[in-house]
């Protein structure tokens, strides 16, 4: 910026010079941002340091001070030994339950949403828009209204209490937002491409698998991110539709931390909390812009 002014023969500009980094305005700007950053970062920091202290140190010191002696024992305990009721095999069971719920839910819900979005974008038929409207309405119905009807549906299907029942529930509730996402993406693909493929003799499935899917990797990633975080973070459906041996990680975490029996081990609690938050955090930090794009797209158009 200053290079131009130093050139020989350059006309001296009128008005104030461009402000430097330390202008009062910038100090205020960055100051405000830093203060807010503290609010957002503090809990993460406290979680980490607490989980690395032993109980004696927690009782003595304050929550913000870094651990004097780093110990990983709380992590081990949270993973393998923490108790929920009579079970004392830690969060690991919940973790694997969540994995077993997540993977089929993810695959099924994304596939169905992509296919439905494709129908709505490229192969409309009379009434398809109305069904889509009804589906979108579902995004706004409070879950509580549908909790019991779904209990009945699952019971009729013989899935109540099983992992597959929960998979079905996740697939159902993920449909509106994901279908919307896919539909909007596919609608924006050039229509002539689709026509060209039909002239070339590709049919419904041919166009879907050979033309549309290869062009749509980003939206699959976005939808996948939404699904992974949504399913992993779910609590309500886990409590309602599974039996204790199938509880997902969030439910088990809550049971460990909020159990009334025994002495509270805060370091173990925080280690367990961190462990539960780890999967979505990893997804978040690695997907970065796509995550932002996903929630912005899903939200703005919703």
């Amino acid at each position: 910026m200053t290079a131009a002014a130093n050139l020989p023969g350059a006309v001296t500009p009128r008005g104030t010079k461009p402000k430097t980094v330390f202008a009062p305005r910038n100090i205020m700007l960055y100051g405000t941002l830093l203060i807010f950053s503290m609010y957002y970062l503090l809990p993460l920091y406290v979680m980490i340091v607490t989980s690395l202290k032993d109980m004696a140190e927690i009782r003595m010191g304050n929550v913000f001070s870094p651990p004097v002696e780093i110990t990983f024992a709380p992590w081990v305990k949270a993973w393998a030994e923490a108790c929920t009721g009579i079970n004392c095999d830690g969060l690991s069971r919940g973790f694997w339950n969540s994995v077993r719920i997540l993977i089929p839910s993810l695959i099924i819900s994304v596939s169905i949403a992509a296919l439905t979005g494709y129908v709505l974008a490229c192969w409309r038929f009379k009434g398809s828009e109305i069904f889509f409207g009804i589906l979108l309405l579902g995004a706004f119905i409070p879950y509580q209204v549908l909790l019991y009807p779904l209990v009945i549906i699952l019971r009729e299907l013989g899935l109540f209490g099983s992992l597959w029942g929960l998979v079905l529930v996740h697939t159902i509730f993920a449909m509106p937002i994901n279908v919307l996402l896919f539909r909007n993406y596919f609608v924006a693909l050039p229509e002539e491409l689709f026509k060209a493929a039909r002239v070339d003799g590709a049919g419904f499935w041919g166009i879907f698998f050979r033309i549309v899917i290869p062009m749509s990797l980003p939206i699959f990633v976005v939808s996948g991110i939404i699904q992974v975080t949504g399913i992993w973070n779910d609590f309500l459906f886990g409590v309602v539709y599974t039996r204790p041996e199938n509880y997902p990680m969030t439910v088990q975490l809550n049971n460990i931390v909020n159990s009334v029996q025994g002495v509270q081990e805060y370091n173990v609690n925080m280690a367990a909390t961190l462990l539960t938050g780890l999967v979505p955090l990893v997804v978040y930090f690695f997907s970065g812009r796509l995550f932002v794009r996903g929630i912005a797209a899903g939200a703005v158009k919703g």
Binding site: E192, K195, A196, D200, G201, R210, I211
Partner: peptide, 18 residues
């Protein structure tokens, strides 16, 4: 069906499969 009509078509936006 379009593919069985014995036609070939060329579009404004080229419509090549990317």
């Amino acid at each position: 069906e379009p593919s069985k009509r014995g036609i070939g078509m060329v579009f404004q936006s080229y419509a090549l499969y990317p």
